[in-house]
């Protein structure tokens, strides 16, 4: 597709869609993202605007679980911002210190903002990663369920 560099403002993308794919990419290992990307034509060149750089985010909790916010402790986070030749800017923010994951997340955030590219990336990368994450959560929940205590009242003992 042809777009004039710098001319087009980044396409308006529904915030909810962007939140969804960024959250999925934040939970995916760099190798898994890169592996899924291989099924697609090579992505266009991008330029790093910032990072990838590792820093800290102060994680907050709430007193009593639902009261006043307090600072629980920090976590490492790696971020990256990239620009495609058409001017689209993508951001990656991921827990941990994996620079490659943050850059891939930023690149994919930029690419996914293009409605023409989105369906292919969604089906080759995002949907399978989301399915793997859901399966992992489900397996964890199933293990937890096996340790659920079934109390019974011992009426026959009376």
């Amino acid at each position: 597709m042809v777009q004039t560099p710098q001319m087009s403002s980044p396409p308006e993308v529904e915030t909810a869609s962007r939140q969804r794919w960024m959250s999925i990419l934040a939970r995916a290992a760099a190798a898994d993202i890169a592996g899924r990307l291989e099924a697609l034509p090579a992505p266009p060149p991008h330029r790093r605007l910032r990072g990838p750089e590792t820093g800290l985010v102060m994680v907050r909790g709430r007193a009593g679980g639902d009261g006043a916010p307090f600072n629980l402790g920090e976590m490492t986070v790696t971020r990256c911002a990239v620009r495609l030749e058409d001017g689209t800017v993508g951001h990656g923010y991921v827990a941990g210190r994996d620079a490659r994951q943050a850059e891939l997340a930023a690149l994919l955030d930029a690419l996914l903002q293009d409605p023409a590219r989105r369906p292919a990336i969604e089906s080759a990368v995002i949907a399978p990663l989301a399915a793997a994450q859901a399966a992992r959560r489900e397996a964890q929940a199933r293990r937890a369920a096996a340790t659920r205590v079934e109390f019974f009242t011992m009426t026959q003992m009376r």
Partner: peptide
């Protein structure tokens, strides 16, 4: 080590009610 890193900001307070429970 943490003193060598910049701080990007603070998180939204954790919603522990929405925890994926292991215990």
């Amino acid at each position: 080590y943490r003193t060598t890193l910049p701080r990007f900001g603070a998180s939204t307070p954790l919603d522990t009610n929405a925890m994926a429970l292991q215990r």
